[in-house]
């Protein structure tokens, strides 16, 4: 697994990867980085623009915006990454089973996937959150379900192409069972494109999480998330525009970085054609 490291040597990959490491490190070390607490109100300090004491200004309760942004990264990144991990796992199981066993299972899976594919992820997620209820867990499950179709489709297509390869035929004629071929031969070979597209999907999931947060459905106050901060900020857009500008920039820059690093990784792994076939 040196490809992720080699991707750093490309100029865009290095810059983007550096930003991602910075954001993740800041999220992990949040309490060490900032003297402020994310939830302690300080009303006399409300609505302050950027200054030496508050680098990005303060919000309507006088809380330091940079502090909330760093703690918000914890929520936004962990929710998106966990959600996508769940959907990759489910998608790989479903897709691999559909492609390997074929028949009615394949038809059923393909139908459900095609059906949900035509609905935008935001709608699927909105309805699921309405069922499960707002909050971090609800949003996580909603995002996970919204993206299962994508990974099922991708895994299925990968396995279908690999299934006809000679080495699989060889394994089968040597008497290998279904499970052995699936887990030892097919899935490891299908892994790289799936993981890269999982990484790119994490970027989309961050935007989706922010959108749900914007509707007030994500992490509940006072726990900050990037979307929740923008939801509060949208009411203050005329009075204190920085409250909404910075979380949005954080989302945009992080998602751009994920895409650029992902592109470098795709180039390093040389899997562009395998990904495009499914797009």
């Amino acid at each position: 697994m040196t490809a992720p490291l080699r991707a750093f040597r490309r100029p865009q990959g290095g810059l983007a990867g550096g930003w991602l490491i910075l954001v993740i490190a800041a999220a992990l070390a949040a309490p060490l980085l900032t003297p402020y607490a994310y939830d302690v109100q300080n009303l006399p300090q409300a609505y302050q623009p950027a200054s030496a004491r508050h680098w990005l200004g303060t919000d309507e309760f006088g809380r330091d915006l940079l502090t909330r942004l760093i703690y918000g990264a914890r929520t936004s990144l962990s929710v998106s990454a966990t959600a996508i991990s769940i959907s990759v796992l489910c998608g790989m199981v479903l897709g691999a089973a559909a492609a390997w066993f074929g028949g009615w299972l394949d038809r059923a899976v393909t139908m459900v996937v095609d059906l949900s594919w035509s609905f935008p992820e935001i709608l699927i997620a909105l309805i699921l959150v309405a069922i499960i209820g707002p909050g971090t867990i609800g949003v996580m499950i909603a995002i996970a379900v919204a993206y299962i179709a994508q990974f099922t489709r991708l895994t299925r297509a990968q396995i279908l192409t690999l299934k006809g390869e000679t080495f699989i035929e060889a394994a089968r004629s040597l008497g290998a069972g279904h499970a052995h071929i699936l887990f030892r031969h097919l899935l490891p070979n299908a892994l790289a494109p799936v993981l890269v597209s999982a990484m790119l999907a994490t970027g989309d999931a961050i935007i989706l999480e922010a959108t749900l947060g914007f509707f007030g459905l994500g992490a509940q106050p006072p726990v900050p998330s990037w979307g929740g901060m923008m939801s509060a900020g949208s009411a203050l857009v005329f009075k204190a525009p920085w409250v909404i500008i910075f979380p949005g920039l954080a989302v945009a820059v992080t998602v751009v970085a994920i895409n650029l690093y992902g592109d470098a990784l795709i180039a390093e792994l040389d899997i562009r054609s395998r990904l495009r076939r499914e797009a």
Binding site: I207, T211, M230, G248, V251, A252
Partner: peptide, 8 residues
């Protein structure tokens, strides 16, 4: 394509 549409 990476800016959340509501933010934009």
């Amino acid at each position: 394509s990476t800016m959340p549409s509501f933010w934009l």
